[in-house]
Design a protein around this nucleic acid. Structure first.
Lengths: 287, 287
DNA sequence: CACCATTATTGATATAACCAATCAAAAAAG
DNA sequence: CTTTTTTGATTGGTTATATCAATAATGGTG
């Protein structure tokens, strides 16, 4: 009662014929001869003992059996590709260091988990630091990748994602929003946030004072949640203790910032390439 | 970025090696030479560019990659078999008549739907009749299959299922259960129900009277739901207007009855064979 | 150490997958 | 209507390779 095995190669040409609509085009795409593709189709029909296609004029049409087999074929090939990619991924080995600003850490754990599932043989290390510092480390190849807020003065890297900057205050606080506005500043993007905020306030004709500064959001959290200052964050950095402010607050709208992925110069290692791909996919996908 | 195609034949031998635990045994099962299987395994490893197995002593062990590929292989082969069977099933063609007692009709619509999905090219006709009559028709090859209550005097067929017989009354009724018990009788199994009921009552020393008779449950329904009589049914024949009685009613416990599938003599047609298989599977599965 | 079972290797063979070339048919162009 | 072009089917020949039979190697067993 064991079913014979289908030939995935033949199924591949079948779906290619369907996708391109002609034997000749399929042959070109698959780098076969036209006669080969023609015979492959015949072979498939012979093996199954039924005709899968018929021609009306020069146009090719699939029989209902052909259509049916097509859907089976697509599923089988999808599974084949998945299996193949998984097997190859397990061969990808090596070590790899990614640098991110501390405050982006919350953005990535699911990506790390997924990466480890796909590439269990890769040792992934993550270091935190300021964007400016990380960019330096990538340039000197101390680390392989760095995901940072794009710097005005170091415009390299590939833009992965754009995020709106927003004002935020302590969740139950109503801090004074009259001039001078008390700012709590920190440096996930090595003062990009600060520049952006100050320029926006300047353009709006507002005044401000830098009430507190810190190297990371963690240091500012008590000040902000206490309602003593306003802070600038991205939406993904919001915590339950932070309340975002919209335009009704009277504060100027802040521009987008750009997340950029920097890669070490001189062709990245295979693991680095893969992680870069994954970060791009995943961060582009999530809102 | 298109992944190469795996060879399902090689994957089949891989899982056979895993299932049997040895190359030689796999070769035997697959009707290959031992050397062929050995080389197939090597070929698979060469194509994937990794080693899938290692031997410790004489025992064969799969590497983690091997285990991984095994799970992929099983899924792929399952899909392959499903596809193959589906394609072949669509070629099964012909006409087919199944006979069932009217009161079993409720048991089978899902089976019919499934059958039509699997074998869309088969014209299925269903006729109803008494079990005795249907058995006759099968014998004379007037119909292909008959699913009937097994007759004491025509013990042929394959027993598909056993079901308890139970007493039932109108859902809101409390009919008199003192002797003589008023019976409503009908003949889904050509009086098998009647025989069984009367024997059980006799053995219990009870008395009864046949209050109503009919050819089908439908004819008795008004009488029974009005609370004028007790009826004997199987659990699958219960309708919302019927209330089953358990032992506390004082009525004797009834024996099981057997559903038997009779096939026309002299090798059944392919569609008949398939429907028979399906009925056996489905009715055995459902409680 | 000899013996048995299992696996790997080798050499020969035959199948069949592929290509190049040709033929057939139909649409498109003239 | 004829010619040209495009597309698919067919044929013959070549090559590659999957298989088998036979043999060698390996490791466990009496």
């Amino acid at each position: 009662m064991r079913a014979p095995t289908l030939d995935l190669t033949l199924l591949r040409t079948l779906v290619t014929i369907a996708d391109t609509g002609s034997v000749t085009a399929a042959a070109k795409r698959l780098a076969y001869t036209q006669s080969t593709v023609s015979m492959q189709l015949q072979r498939l029909e012979a093996q199954l003992g039924m005709s899968l296609h018929e021609r009306e004029g020069r146009r090719l049409r699939f029989t209902s059996e052909g259509e049916r087999l097509l859907s089976h074929a697509r599923r089988l090939l999808a599974l084949n590709d998945e299996a193949w990619n998984d097997m190859q991924a397990r061969q990808v080995t090596g070590d790899l260091t990614l640098g991110i600003p501390e405050d982006y850490a919350s953005l990535l754990p699911s990506v790390f988990a997924y990466f480890h599932q796909l590439y269990p043989a890769v040792g992934l290390k993550v270091i935190c630091g300021t964007s400016a510092h990380l960019v330096e480390q990538v340039k000197t190849a101390d680390i392989d990748l760095a995901l940072v807020t794009r710097q005005r003065n170091s415009p390299g890297g590939e833009v992965i994602r754009r995020e709106p900057l927003i004002w935020a205050v302590g969740v139950n606080q109503q801090p004074s929003l009259s001039d001078p506005i008390p700012l709590a500043l920190y440096s996930p993007g090595a003062d990009v946030f600060r520049e952006v905020a100050e320029q926006a306030l300047l353009a709006a004709g507002r005044e401000w004072r830098v009430a507190y500064t810190s190297q990371s959001m963690a240091g500012l959290a008590p000040i902000v949640t206490a309602g003593l200052a306003v802070v600038v964050v991205t939406r993904s950095m919001l915590t339950p203790s932070l309340r975002p402010l919209d335009e009704s607050s009277g504060l100027p709208v802040l521009p987008m910032i750009e997340l950029a992925l920097h890669r070490a110069p001189h062709r990245p290692s295979e693991p680095a390439r893969r992680l870069g791909e994954l970060i791009r996919e995943q961060l582009a996908a999530s809102t």
